[in-house]
Write a protein that binds this DNA or RNA. Structure first.
Length: 262
DNA sequence: ATGCCAGGTAACACCTGA
C-alpha cells in the first residue's frame, strides 16, 4: 500500500467523447482514485478495457443519455453500493460508493442542477440534498474513513463565481441550495481544496460559451468533502486546470487531494 | 441574460446542461 494516495473528482461530460483526454490525463496526473460524473452511457457502453489497461479497477452506475457516475481505483473496489439511499423511485444514476485501498469509503456524486427556479427540478435538487445530508450523517455515526466527491452543483459563496449578479436567479446560488451545502460541511466534513486555498475566484467549471474559459469566467462547484479522521491525513489539494485547456475538453476540470493513508 | 457551445438521441429537430 502506498504511503499517500491522490484522489480526484472530474465531471467529464460524456465518457465516450472524452476518452482520449481521460487516458492522457490518467497518465500525466497518475491519480490513485478517480470519481467520475456525467458518463452519459449505460454500463455496457463504458470503455472498460481502455481504462483497465491504464491500470484501474472500475465500478459504474451508468444511465443512457444523462447522468452516470463511476469510481476508478488502482486498488480493488469493495462493497459497492449504487444509488443514494432514501428514495426507491429515484431512477437517476447520480451516486455510487465503494471502499478503496481496504479502508477508505469514497462516493462519486452528481448532484442535480435544479434549474429553472420554481420547477420540479429545483424541488428534486433540494430533496436530493436532504437525502445526501441524511446519508452523510448516518455514515458518520461510525468512524469509517469517508470521502464524498463530485459535482455538487452549488456555488457556495459569491466569491466562487465570476459574476454573482448573473446568477441571482440560478439554482446553484439560491439560499436553499447554499444552506444545504453548509449543513453538510457542518456535519464535520472538510472541503479538501478550501483547506489549502482560501483565495476567492478559484474555479472548477467554465461554460463552453461566450469565451468563458479564455476570460476565466468560471464557477467553483466540484468538491471533495472528507470525514474528520481522514481530513486529519490531508497533505495537499488543488485544481488541475490542464484538461480544461485541451482540444475537446469537458466544461469541468479535475479537483484533487492527497491523503496519507497510514 | 441566454442556449451564442457541447453532447445525446434520433432523424434532418429537440432535450439537457449550469
Amino acid at each position: 500500500m502506498p504511503n499517500s494516495i491522490k484522489i480526484t473528482t472530474w465531471n467529464i461530460n460524456s465518457v465516450k467523447v472524452r476518452l482520449p483526454n481521460i487516458l492522457l490525463w490518467l497518465k500525466e496526473a497518475a491519480p490513485d482514485v478517480v470519481l467520475l460524473q456525467e458518463l452519459k452511457c449505460v454500463d455496457e457502453k463504458f470503455p472498460r478495457m481502455e481504462i483497465e489497461d491504464a491500470g484501474y479497477n472500475i465500478e459504474i452506475h451508468g444511465q443512457k443519455t444523462y447522468n452516470g457516475v463511476a469510481i476508478l481505483s488502482k486498488s480493488p473496489i469493495e462493497d459497492v453500493k449504487r444509488g443514494l439511499p432514501g428514495d426507491t423511485d429515484d431512477e437517476q444514476a447520480r451516486y455510487i460508493e465503494g471502499t478503496v485501498f481496504g479502508k477508505l469509503r469514497v462516493a462519486s456524486l452528481y448532484l442535480p442542477n435544479g434549474n429553472p427556479m420554481g420547477s420540479d427540478k429545483f424541488k428534486y435538487k433540494l430533496a436530493w440534498m436532504d437525502r445526501l445530508k441524511a446519508h452523510m450523517a448516518s455514515s458518520l455515526m461510525d468512524d469509517e474513513l469517508r470521502l464524498w466527491g463530485g459535482d455538487y452543483n452549488v456555488i457556495p459563496t459569491d466569491s466562487d463565481v465570476y459574476n454573482p449578479a448573473a446568477f441571482t436567479n440560478d439554482a446553484l446560488t439560491q439560499p436553499e441550495s447554499r444552506a444545504r451545502f453548509r449543513a453538510m460541511i457542518h456535519l464535520g466534513l472538510t472541503d479538501a481544496f478550501r483547506a489549502f486555498n482560501t483565495l476567492p475566484h478559484q474555479y472548477s467549471y467554465w461554460d463552453y460559451q461566450a469565451g468563458a474559459w479564455a476570460k476565466d469566467n468560471g464557477l467553483l462547484i466540484d468538491f471533495l468533502l472528507l470525514s474528520p479522521l481522514i481530513a486529519d491525513k490531508l497533505c495537499s489539494a488543488g485544481i488541475d486546470k490542464n484538461p480544461r485547456g485541451r482540444e475537446k475538453p469537458s466544461d469541468h476540470t479535475p479537483v484533487w487531494c492527497e491523503i496519507e493513508l497510514n
